[in-house]
Amino acid sequence: MKLYIPPQLTRLALAFAIFISLFLVLRHFLVPDTFGQYGHYRGASLIDNAQPEIHYAGQQACFECHQDIQDLKAQDVHSEIHCETCHGPGQKHVLSGESSDILKPTGREFCGLCHAMNAAKQKNAVFQVDLKKHNIGKNCIECHNPHQPWEMKK
């Protein structure tokens, strides 16, 4: 007896074959080139992620022009604090050398960020003063040099 293949089946097989091939062809063109280079992701994305401009230049960059302050700072308790912690992002300033491109922090709150009393600060991690008691009415930098806190100004 001759094997009977219902016509629906052959037609459907054809339809599915076309559908699947279309899918595979489309897929071939849509998958990004570097996909799978290192794993299940676009390899070029590693480069994309390394691209963005930096905003923080790093302390070494500042030293090139501000040798004096580096020396000041190195002598005292703030030596471990990098310039940009207080002055904010400096890359733009490093490139331009303009003073308008960099922040100059002021105010008691600014020093207070680190030095205000808080039970959560370990006693030996930072010296704390009570902002409500310690020489109220005056700005910290009127007495302390921010780069060399124990070198008191008159």
């Binding site: 009977y4 219902p6 016509p7 629906q8 089946l9 037609r11 459907l12 339809a15």
Partner: peptide
């Protein structure tokens, strides 16, 4: 119908089977 216009009893029976 995808052009499958065969409605002989045998084919229709296959419709049901499949």
């Amino acid at each position: 119908t995808l052009g499958v216009s065969d409605i002989s009893p045998r084919t229709v029976k296959w419709d049901r089977k499949l």
